[in-house]
Amino acid sequence: MCGKPLVVPEQASAASTSFAGDVPAGAPALEPGTPWERRVELGSWRAWRDTVVEALFEPGRLFQDARIDRGAAQARFAVVTVTVFWIAGQMLERFLLRPWTQRAVAGIAVRGQFGSVVQKLMQIESDNSPRTAALMALLTPVVVLVTLYVNAAVTHLFAVLLGQNKRGFAATFTACAYAFAPLVLFAIPGCGAPIAVVWAAILTGIGLKHTHRIGPGGAAATVIAPYVLVCCGGCALAGLFVAGSGVLPR
């Protein structure tokens, strides 16, 4: 209406990322960031709560908003979330539900083929000393961090093998870190852990789809491939050896 030409400033290319997915300073991020990545403006508690709720019930939105250049913040989210709820679950199990679980585990030990292993596990878990509790509290974050990076590395290896690696390790790590959110269920003794692990695997697939911008089939294949390789590949290998055992000289 004023007669002047409309001038739209050009945005710098977001594709010019440096080593390991770090976005260079000054380049605008396309994603707004998850609540956890905006915790300075939201406050830590609200940011953590909103991130967990989004991860559990609106994962597509969470992973669409996630920025792959926030690796340190994402690692902190995963380590804090899992550590707190894992320790809470272990304390709950140790001090409140011990007699009931010992009876249940003893029943499994008598029947199952892992009997000796379960009995050793029970002996270790019966140690309620303050030293054990302190050691557990100190080692849990380390174990969670190692698990997070090993999980991300294995997932990334299979993403590379299947040609689904479009945005580097940082994108895989983002998916794996936020996929640890369902591990809050570790606080529920008994059924919490198996549900959490399956949920986390599904979330990893959803996360890879958004962070690497790949198709749902490729994302699902990347997550499922390690399990399929071990199960189906192992069965095929066993079949081959059983078939070949009659042919091979002894």
């Binding site: 390991a20 961090l145 190692v146 990076y149 590395a153 940082a170």
Partner: peptide
């Protein structure tokens, strides 16, 4: 390259721990 990225440090920490 410049100093190691946060993921290089994280992977190194995990590897050393193992």
């Amino acid at each position: 390259a410049g100093p190691p990225s946060v993921h290089a440090l994280g992977l190194a920490a995990a590897g050393t721990a193992l």
